[in-house]
Amino acid sequence: MHQIDCPWCGTRDEAEFQYQGDATVQRPKPDADEETFFRYVYARENPKGWHVEWWHHVAGCRQWIKVVRNTLTHEIDSTGGPQSKLTKPDEKGGTKS
């Protein structure tokens, strides 16, 4: 069972959270064209490996938090608030495999 380190509440069970998908996609500016919005809603990288994603702490502080998690191993590298700039371990210069 995933143990997720909520920046506000500390480490909690995955059962307290609602997963909310890829956190790397950015909502376009309102005047962006339909294609840009299309990619925001539908285009996903779906990586095998590190994935930056949203987990919503619904049974806790109600914060949307960012989690860097490995989709092959379920290992979690880091967590942060909604505006944090988290990077994947394999993009930090190979500190972790």
Partner: peptide
């Protein structure tokens, strides 16, 4: 679904 991306 467990409800998170996974290949595990």
């Amino acid at each position: 679904l467990d409800g998170y991306n996974s290949y595990a």
